[in-house]
Design a protein around this nucleic acid. Structure first.
Lengths: 343, 343
DNA sequence: CTGAAAGCGCTAACAC
DNA sequence: GTGTTAGCGCTTTCAG
């Protein structure tokens, strides 16, 4: 390593001096350009680009009390649902002059509270978050009592501003689509149910739909660890009376379910149909193409970011009553077909 | 929306007043706790937690000239390679008290320069970046002349500090593995070659290995747009003398190549073997499991973050000569097999 | 249309 | 071991 040179970024006073104006004028050039004479403005701008001047963000933040940074709290970037969503957030914040600060919680509830604290200490102007369970979140309860604007994504809860998709209704539709295709032996597969209110909600939709159709679902297949997920699912599929359809609480699990089926010498979809949930982009390129509840992941992020930024601009906090429910689309694809004839 | 309450965060002077000490003492409690008497420290800490005090980051940054924020510039979060890497970065920065600010460039070269400028204006202490082409990057050339520490990930170039993997050697090994399996008709598939020095490097390794084996490769299959990728690959596979092996410049393309093969009624791997590059986690759960050059994506991010943070701590900039080449591992999996017998 | 001056909240000499 | 003071770079009244 070589040691760093000085090469300090110039301050507003140096620019002012070189341009023969006062610091206030330079400041105005950036914040209220119309209020400075064109000639003056051009001189200042020239000097700025000459010195590569960019206003110092912390000084401005300190003065204005606005950082132009949004904090983002999400479980993990390893699930494409969340990286797609973060990409959506990034693409709407950047052109509006906001930066983002993501923090991942790895589905650990206490990490959520810490993330919020840390982000607030960093002075973010607002927060976009995906929590494990909005209803029981202590961190969220505290957040609600602060004045900092925030929006939840994916979670849905009456007392918080949310951008979400009706997971229960979607799952209901999935089950009915399967019923139409002649399936009766349907099982649901999910991760740790208590770790995600989305999964719970989807499960509720599943149970409700099955009851509605007077069908007894297989016992829920809970696969807490991805390492063993495939084996656990395969174990169920290898039983004689195995389900003819596996409804998964997310796409990642569905992909593993497909693998479990192949390992169990079952063809997808001829022997077993499989559905996912989330609509990650990759699902469309798989063979068989994954049937899933396609959520507009990027749009959810964009929508949350827009809402938050607008709220901040109006000095308000997003109101729970204005929560947004985005439409889902069920993508029936190659991983689903008619139920096989009864043996 | 309801309007925000005041509920201002307390400042250090209020805490000082309530604790009956001076602001400096409060400051010391946070920055040099040993230099303040235990009793005093405890009082201060009590008052702090009582008021929910956290030092204001912009004030501290302004004063110390260190923001504890790292900028991250990468092409997109939609490719799991980069989101896995970012997750790696996030997991090493967070416990060390650094926040990250990611910006995506969508593979647009000019966006890289802008991202760097913006991030510097936000006052980041250092930069981790993945650029399109390190050799030709004007933005990188400028960056090198500044005193801000930075590390490149995935890119490799002699005059920049890089954390990377030997893409050419890896590709060389892949080709040789294919040769050992009896393949002779081997084609490479890549995205826009000029948009990525990684792809170029991998292609170079491919060409070199083929030449070394006295084999004429198929013409490079360049698939500029993902929308048409599958059809373009299928077109090649439908020729009578189609390749028996498709070597892809990344995993996302390989997944599409698998789909193209199925659409062309070719079995993978019986009729055509397919390899990817990157080692995205999902590849292991596909059926057939994707053969690929597994890069330690998260570790690459971690390694870059550690290097950068250490450099910052020592008031130095990472030196190109200390660049790190991480080992790759070729994962031979179900998507590859012996070449089919000649017809 | 422009300048002077105060102060955002914090840290780091420097005193005591 | 603790307090006093100055100042980081900027914006924003308030004068002119």
């Amino acid at each position: 390593m070589k040691s760093t040179q000085a090469a300090q970024r110039p301050s507003i006073v140096e620019i002012a001096r070189h341009a023969g104006v006062s610091p206030s004028t330079v400041s105005r050039v950036f914040n209220d350009p119309d209020r400075v004479q064109e000639a003056t403005r051009e001189t200042v701008l020239r000097v700025c680009s000459e010195f590569g001047y960019r206003p110092n963000a912390s000084a401005r933040t300190l003065r204005t009390q606005r950082s132009q940074v949004l904090g983002v709290v999400l479980p993990t970037l390893e699930n494409p649902v969340f990286s797609e969503c973060l990409q959506g957030i990034a693409s709407t914040t950047a052109p509006r002059g906001y930066a983002i600060m993501p923090v991942t919680t790895q589905y650990v509830v206490e990490a959520e509270g810490n993330a919020i604290e840390d982000l607030q200490a960093f002075g973010v102007d607002g927060l976009i978050l995906v929590v494990s369970d909005a209803a029981s979140s202590e961190a969220l309860r505290r957040l609600k009592n602060r004045s900092i604007p925030y929006v939840l994504v994916y979670n849905r809860h009456d007392s918080h501003p949310c951008v979400s998709v009706a997971g229960d209704a979607a799952m209901h539709d999935v089950v009915f689509g399967l019923l139409e295709r002649g399936h009766k032996r349907i099982a649901m597969v999910c991760g740790r149910l208590h770790a995600s209110d989305r999964a719970q909600q989807r499960y509720a939709g599943f149970v409700e739909a099955m009851a509605h159709a007077d069908l007894t679902p297989y016992p829920l297949i809970e696969v807490p660890f991805i390492e063993t997920a495939i084996q656990e699912i395969a174990a169920v599929l290898q039983r004689n009376d195995h389900p003819t359809a596996l409804v998964c609480s997310n796409d990642l699990i569905a992909i593993r379910a497909m693998r479990a089926a192949r390992q169990s010498r079952l063809r997808v979809p001829e022997d077993v149909s499989i559905t996912g949930f989330d609509g990650v982009k990759l699902g469309e390129d798989l063979t068989p193409q994954l049937s899933t509840v396609a959520q507009p992941n990027a749009e959810m992020g964009m929508s949350a970011a827009r809402w938050l930024i607008n709220s901040i601009a109006q000095q308000r906090v997003p109101n729970a009553a204005d929560s947004i429910s985005l439409p889902y689309r069920i993508r029936w694809a190659e991983s689903c077909s008619q139920a096989p004839p009864v043996q």
